[in-house]
Simulated scan of single mutants.
Amino acid sequence: MSAVANDGGAPGRIIPPAPPTSDSRTFARGVQDLIEGLRTSELWLHLGWTDIKQRYKRSVLGPLWITIATGVTAVAMGILYGELFHQDIKTFLPYVLLGFIFWGFIETSILDGSVVFSTNEGLIKQLPAPISIHVYRVVWRSLIIFAHNIVIYAIVFAVFRPPVGWSGFLVVPAIILFALNATWATIVFGILSTRFRDIGQLLTTAVRLVFFMTPIIWSAKTLNAAGDSGSSKLRYVELNPMYHYLEIARGPLLGDHVAFYHWGVVLACTAVGWIAALLVMRNFRARVAYWV
């Protein structure tokens, strides 16, 4: 409503109301975007599955190439490095295989997430929808690829019979944490890479480097067996967050005991990541359409 000012005997003058404050840069709008994106699940579920089909269009085996490529690579690397490090193939091959499967989920989430907005310029500018649908689309697509790859572990499990007990069900909360982390990573890296395109190239280089620094094709147990010098080296390995992510997901499926501090590190990284994601959504969500 307008206000009327009275300056003594002068006639009252109308004071216009203050312009409304924009709420586009608030945490509430960022959270609302995430919630609305979840409600439109039919859209991003369809888009994610379409991405997989388009990738293997006119292919005889279709998405099965995902499983074949991962299986051949993991088995070849497992046998090779098992011989080089003098590891028992019955335990080392499942170890390497699961490392490749879960690392594939991490790598796909980061690299595909970093280009999620720049590669969907047309949809973002023409489709009036929350930007979070593109985030969920990437995570859903990564889960589909993971589901294809985990079939390889079922075959290896039938052959080598790792001692998996009831603790194997701990892989379920581990996968949930993987999905939550993939979501915030896609939000943060996707939006920042849209503004600064060099970030995508840096992420590609960093992911390749971290792959060799993470116990995937080599085992951290070999460091424990190396005595005091091995223990000091293991401390450096534990500084790598990816080591803890793989431990909580791979350990239960190998029948290994997973120390609680691995879960603590992953939960802490998840919390910090989501704080960063909410900050990025708050400050830059509305600018994505102008940056693509």
Rank of each mutant, 00 (worst) to 15 (best):
L45V: 15
S24G: 01
T21F: 08
G48H: 04
K53P: 07
W49D: 07
P20K: 03
S22I: 03
P20N: 01
G30L: 01
L45R: 05
W44C: 01
L43P: 09
T50Q: 10
A28L: 11
I35N: 01
D51A: 11
E42T: 14
S22T: 12
E42L: 12
R39L: 07
I35D: 01
D33Q: 05
Q54H: 12
E42A: 13
S24Q: 05
I35H: 02
I35W: 12
G37F: 01
E36N: 15
R29E: 11
L45H: 12
A28H: 08
T50V: 15
G30R: 00
V31K: 00
I35V: 15
P20W: 07
E36T: 13
E42D: 14
T50E: 12
L38H: 01
G37W: 00
K53S: 06
L34H: 06
L45Y: 13
S24N: 02
S22G: 06
V31L: 09
E36G: 14
L43G: 07
L47R: 11
L38V: 12
R29T: 14
T21N: 00
E36K: 11
D33R: 02
W44E: 00
W49F: 14
R39N: 04
K53V: 14
D33P: 09
S41M: 05
R25P: 03
Q54P: 09
T40V: 11
D51Y: 06
K53N: 10
R25A: 11
